[in-house]
Amino acid sequence: MAVVAAKPSEEPKSNTKITGQTNTITLRISRSNPSEGQESTFAEFQVPVQKWTTVLEAILYVKQNFDHSVAVRYSCRQASCGSCGMKINGRPALACYTKVSELNSNVVTVEPMNNFPIIRDLAVDFKQLISNHKKMKPFIIREDSEVTPESKEFIQTPQDLEKFLQFSYCIKCGLCNSACPTMATDESFIGPQGLAQAYRYVADNRDKGKDERLKVIDDSHGIWRCHFAGSCSHVCPKGVDPAMAIQLLRGYMLGFRK
């Protein structure tokens, strides 16, 4: 193992074809602890990988065999929990969902996601993301309830469902917020995750709370700050397409869409 100070952008490039046999890659892990005033450095490890090895498995190999103090958040290992978002070779991605072999490099650099405060190493603080998500009132708002004995469930056609279904697949991994150019400069911006969730409920015909949500997002740090760069949709691992949700929501607010 070697610990070297380096700029995140300094990334040695080397291409390799990983076959079914075991290959060895260099895994560069960003190590930092801002609360202790520790600047970011890179620790390098030689890790054996196979065609199916994910970046998360490579990091866990390091924890098991070289340095158990590497801080990384993970849980499901199957792109369902949204815990292991990080920057892999410069782009935000889920570590459990990214195979080393598809990176086409025998040097893999992992860093904490941008636009989130670093807790330690690869673990970032989701406080702002969760707080903005809550601000969007992510639940059906209406006075009557479908759980009273007299009422039946609210009827919804497959077409009604399709209007919001894809946006409900958000796992709150934060990759979209990390890739967003507005999030990079505006710390008050709600972010693509929150705005897409606002549309998820606005497009739901069972919901009656549109006005409450629109009041929150109709702000200079809200929906009007999105410039449709599309980076959020580029990195979304679940096909949520936040850029589409935001533009549809803006179209609705401007009166172009019902």
Binding site: N114, N115, V124, T182, M183, A184, T185, E187
Partner: peptide, 9 residues
Amino acid sequence: SNREGIKGM
């Protein structure tokens, strides 16, 4: 806050 800033934008 680990924001990318103008450079990242």
